[in-house]
């Protein structure tokens, strides 16, 4: 029941014209100068090791930035970046990237039935997340997804749902899931200013 409600809200969020942000997207655009070399100004990643963050749910981005800042999640570059951001800046830049619209489409001839079963309930068949707590996976570099799943599997990254799911996957299943979402055609439409 809860899931159905969340799904409904998620649908509204993604389809809605002007979602309300807790941060200020215009102020976040300036903060994004620190992010653009890797994540792009519109959140379409410019290097393979960085994920696409354009059109990601605002609350997901806020949580990840705070996790990098607190040390709960670690990354060689992001730990350095987040350590210098204020609460306000984290909210603003999250709002900036959330304000863009992410769209995904399966490559022609792909059978949706082959999508990785363990992932689709939250991340969607096409990698556009169905819950605020889940990131989009569409079009990410397969090695990025592979790396995150292995980090969950080995306990280097923690999440109440993801650790259990990744532990149940073999390295081959992890790579297959990564390949599936990496093959999705992904696009970010920039927010209007």
């Amino acid at each position: 029941m809860r899931r159905a409600i969340l799904l409904g809200l998620g649908g509204l969020m993604l389809a809605g014209a002007a979602p309300a942000f807790s941060g200020d997207p215009a102020a976040g655009r300036k903060v994004a100068n620190m992010c653009r070399t890797c994540h792009g100004l519109d959140g379409f990643a410019r290097i393979p090791i960085a994920p696409h963050i354009g059109g990601e749910p605002e609350s997901y981005l806020q949580r990840q930035l705070r996790a990098f800042k607190s040390g709960a999640r670690r990354h060689e570059m992001m730990t350095v970046v987040a350590s210098g951001l204020s609460e306000r800046q984290m909210d603003d830049v999250s709002a900036w990237y959330a304000a863009h619209k992410a769209t995904a489409s399966l490559p022609a001839g792909t059978d949706p039935a082959n999508a990785p079963e363990a992932c689709t309930a939250c991340h969607g068949v096409d990698g556009i997340a169905l819950f605020e707590d889940a990131p989009n996976l569409a079009g990410e570099t397969n090695i990025y997804i592979d790396t995150q799943l292995k980090a969950f599997k080995r306990g280097k990254r923690t999440h109440e749902i993801m650790n259990g799911i990744a532990e149940a996957m073999s390295d081959e299943e992890i790579r297959a899931a990564a390949d599936w979402y990496a093959s999705v055609e992904f696009k970010v439409d920039a927010a209007t200013k």
């Binding site: 393979p48 060689e76 790396t147």
Partner: peptide, 8 residues
């Protein structure tokens, strides 16, 4: 394998 990463 436990030391694998994507960066560096």
């Amino acid at each position: 394998p436990d030391e694998e990463s994507f960066n560096h």
